[in-house]
Amino acid sequence: MQTAAALRHAQRILVITGAGLSADSGLPTYRGVGGLYNGTTVDGLPIEMALSGPMLRRDPALCWKYIAELGKACLGAQPNAAHYAIAQLQRIKPDCWVLTQNVDGYHRAAGSPPERLIEIHGQLSPLFCQSCGAVDPQLSEHLQRPLPPLCKKCQGILRPPVVLFQEMLPERAMETLHEEMAKGFDAVLTIGTTASFPYIHEPVLRARVAGGFTAEINPQRTDHSAAMDVFLGCRALEVMELLISHI
Rank of each mutant, 00 (worst) to 15 (best):
T3Y: 04
A4V: 07
L7W: 08
R8H: 12
R12F: 04
I13S: 07
V15R: 01
I16S: 09
D24E: 15
D24Y: 04
D24S: 15
L27K: 01
Y30K: 08
Y37Q: 04
G39P: 10
T40P: 04
T41K: 09
G44N: 01
I47R: 00
E48F: 01
E48K: 00
E48W: 03
M49E: 03
A50M: 06
S52W: 04
P54I: 12
M55A: 05
M55Y: 00
M55F: 05
D59W: 00
P60W: 00
L62P: 08
C63D: 10
W64Y: 12
K65E: 12
I67A: 03
A68W: 07
G71H: 06
K72Y: 14
K72M: 15
A73Y: 08
L75D: 05
P79R: 09
A81H: 06
H83Y: 08
H83A: 10
Y84L: 09
A85C: 11
Q88G: 07
L89K: 05
L89G: 14
R91P: 03
I92Y: 07
P94N: 14
C96N: 13
W97S: 10
V98R: 07
V98N: 06
T100A: 09
Q101N: 11
N102W: 06
V103Y: 10
V103I: 15
D104Q: 12
D104F: 03
G105P: 11
A109G: 11
S112I: 04
P114C: 12
E115Q: 15
E115D: 15
I118Y: 08
I118N: 13
E119W: 06
H121W: 10
Q123K: 13
S125E: 11
S125T: 02
L127D: 02
F128E: 03
F128T: 00
C129D: 09
Q130Y: 06
Q130C: 05
G133H: 08
G133I: 10
G133R: 06
A134Q: 08
D136I: 07
P137C: 05
E141R: 07
H142D: 09
L147V: 03
L150Y: 08
K152E: 14
K153H: 13
K153W: 04
Q155H: 08
G156M: 03
G156T: 08
G156P: 05
I157H: 10
P161W: 07
L164Q: 02
M168Y: 11
A173P: 00
A173S: 15
M174C: 13
E175N: 05
T176W: 06
M181G: 00
A182S: 01
F185N: 11
L189K: 04
F197S: 03
P198R: 14
H201G: 07
R206F: 00
A207H: 07
A207N: 14
A207G: 14
G212K: 03
F213K: 00
F213R: 07
F213W: 05
A215V: 02
E216Q: 02
E216Y: 02
I217T: 01
Q220K: 15
R221L: 03
D223E: 13
A226C: 00
M228Q: 00
L232D: 03
A236I: 02
L237G: 11
E241R: 07
L242M: 07
L243N: 11
I247K: 01
